[in-house]
Design a protein around this nucleic acid. Sequence first.
DNA 1: GTATCTGCAAAACATTTGCAATTCT
DNA 2: AGAATTGCAAATGTTTTGCAGATAC
Lengths: 138, 138
Amino acid sequence: MDKIIEQFIHHGLRPSPQRVAVLHYLSNHKTHPTAETIYTALSPSYPTLSRTTVYQTLEKLYENGLTQKILIEDGEMRFDADMSNHGHFKCTSCGKVFDFFYTQDFPFPQMEGGFKVQEQHLYYKGRCPECKESSSRQ
Amino acid sequence: MDKIIEQFIHHGLRPSPQRVAVLHYLSNHKTHPTAETIYTALSPSYPTLSRTTVYQTLEKLYENGLTQKILIEDGEMRFDADMSNHGHFKCTSCGKVFDFFYTQDFPFPQMEGGFKVQEQHLYYKGRCPECKESSSRQ
DNA sequence: GTATCTGCAAAACATTTGCAATTCT
DNA sequence: AGAATTGCAAATGTTTTGCAGATAC
């Protein structure tokens, strides 16, 4: 049985073709796509696929801890099936989002006073090596 | 001369009453308000104030390094006039955003390979001490 | 008097919702 | 049958844009 289908079943979610396609896409494209990107990519193979389903699926995946939401730019929610401890760097020139991994934790004394952490997010904005030298701006 | 007006002049921005009011509000309300919150708060005093002006002003302030944009929830851009090194914690129950300050830097080897960092953002989501005990969810 | 700034109305855009049809179990 | 899922169309909410009038240098 496919590993992706297993994940759905394990979380009590029906492994519909649309849902499997979305998670499969996310697992194989580490590009932090938006819902629209995923929809556009899958539409040819699933002609009746709707944006609604993509959005609903991504929300279900998030609720069940199968993906994380990456928010760097407003109105541009991105998704990532990599649940390991890592942060992101978005190039303000080419728009690409890079992963970077870290092992250390972030000890913040102020957070020890009874705060219960559910998610930790660390990201940078700047220029990637390729864009740093070029003259194009924004 | 007012310190806030000075800041505008120093950056070559006209210190219009609306702009001054926005920055003044941000400097005196460390609650990480949204554009809408600021608009609603200032409207009584500036009856003709428009959302457009609030948005444009906040963008100018950001471009000139007088505020930072805080993005934790999609479609909910918040603003902060505190430009010091600090992160945020948003309570998923009451919605409040807490500041927390840190002194250490975050050394990420992967970022040293020619990435030029412009902004660093660190935030948490979870439950604040007050909401942790209560039974209300989300 | 010329560039900047304001604010109204409309547009743009991502995301959500109502709901009827469909699909699983 | 009954619950979950899909997808269309419409609605929502935030942010942006076109543009005319007002304001400041």
